[in-house]
Design a protein around this nucleic acid. Structure first.
Lengths: 234, 234
DNA sequence: TCAAAAGTGTTAAGTTTACACCCATGA
DNA sequence: TCATGGGTGTAAACTTAACACTTTTGA
């Protein structure tokens, strides 16, 4: 094999995962109080190094499945973080991924093992390195995508009420939505299907449970439950 | 310094730049017919390895300024490409960036030196490695951004006609726009300012030259010259 | 004088917003 | 019986889309 590259430096390449969950009307992140070095005792995202023979996407999936035991998690790349001093230990380029998962799919035993817990977005502590910046960019990326692609259902159980769905969108975009207008839009989306199940846990009357039908969605690919936002300061 | 990382592998980290230009009603890319190894004689994006002591953003800026002599180029990260075998020579993780530049700012002497040329988007040849995939993702990223943030002015000269601006949007989104509706929207954007200059090169009558006023834009941050598109197949 | 690009308004259709009350039930 | 969350429609405001002719002037 010829070797044109050997004069160039090599770096550690890591992945970090911004894991979103939704509970009690708020977005949460799965964070880790590190019980290992470096930065022992500090809060961080879940991450790990990319192995030889493993793509960065695979590394992110591995980190997620090691942590949760789940293999089919919705995941998307946020981007690379490549500042020289981002990790004070050594030069590490990290690729951030966000993941969306139903908070109930994740058992609390796993939480203990990894010293992890769900923290409300409004209570995110100082994280190590540039992890707070990763969270901010992940949230922007996710909001952009969730406004026109139905990824948000990954944050809900298979069966959900319209109140839950609305509350999820309000949590993501941080503003209230009108109930009647919201339901009118949902009603036009045939792939958000009424089931004959009822949720009796959150009201006396009970609420109809709905379900997202992905193959029906793929026929129209039309989805918009939230207005497209103007630019933030860029 | 403690050394928690040494058991993990290191990789080459590269940057690749998708450089957009606009000319004669079409988007173009600045591509390179490689006069060096590896992949000598093949077409590729402009790229380079990230140096020690240099962030990935800085590496991308360096690649762009080495190539063009320009330092203030609009540039944004597309994302990391981390497949194991993406570079058949050796494991390389590459961070893609797109750049927008006014095709006239780039002199043809530079083109020669780098064996580079502007190729119409509709004529992009097979590129090395995963560079075609990078181009596709860069275009999607750029379209998403250009629909609600006025980045497209980076593709035009400082003074431009409304016909040029419309033609640019038609090139980016690949569909025709109604002239009167387009001009009505532009007229509402006070930061797209009429100047008292005229362009006489493309019509006998002459067309009024406009100019984008960034600080005026920042007061409202409202911009939309193209409808937000539905999902492509994702 | 005519070809070629620049410039200009109105109307209908569709979308978004605002808004308030009745329903069902378990405690 | 009443407190709680579930469910429903209409009208006004706004936005988008469709559409065709006149102007200017250099060749």
């Amino acid at each position: 094999m010829s070797d044109f590259y050997s004069i160039y430096p090599k770096f550690h390449v890591a992945v970090d995962c911004i894991i979103f969950g939704f509970d009690k009307g708020e977005l949460h992140l799965l964070l880790q109080k590190r019980n290992f070095q470096p930065a022992l005792g500090e809060w961080s995202l879940m991450g790990g190094f990319v192995n030889a023979g493993e793509s960065t996407d695979e590394a992110a999936k591995r980190v997620l499945s090691d942590l949760t035991g789940l293999s089919k998690i919705y995941m998307e790349q946020v981007g690379a973080f490549g500042e020289v001093e981002r990790d004070p230990g050594e030069r590490v380029v990290s690729i951030a991924y966000y993941a969306l998962l139903n908070i109930r799919d994740y058992d609390s035993e796993q939480l203990q093992v990894h010293n992890a817990c769900w923290i409300k977005m409004s209570d995110i502590p100082d994280l190590i390195f540039d992890h707070n910046a990763m969270v901010a960019r992940a949230l922007e990326t996710m909001k952009g995508k969730a406004s026109h692609i139905p990824i948000s259902f990954n944050l809900l159980p298979e069966y959900f009420t319209l109140t839950q769905l609305q509350s999820l969108y309000e949590a993501i975009y941080g503003e209230p939505l009108d109930k009647r207008n919201f339901r009118k839009k949902v009603a036009e989306m045939d792939y958000i299907e009424k089931t004959d199940h009822m949720d009796k846990t959150s009201s006396k009357r009970g609420a109809i449970l709905y379900r997202f039908n992905d193959s029906a969605y793929r026929k129209t690919m039309k989805f918009r439950l939230f207005k497209v936002s103007d630019a933030s300061i860029v």
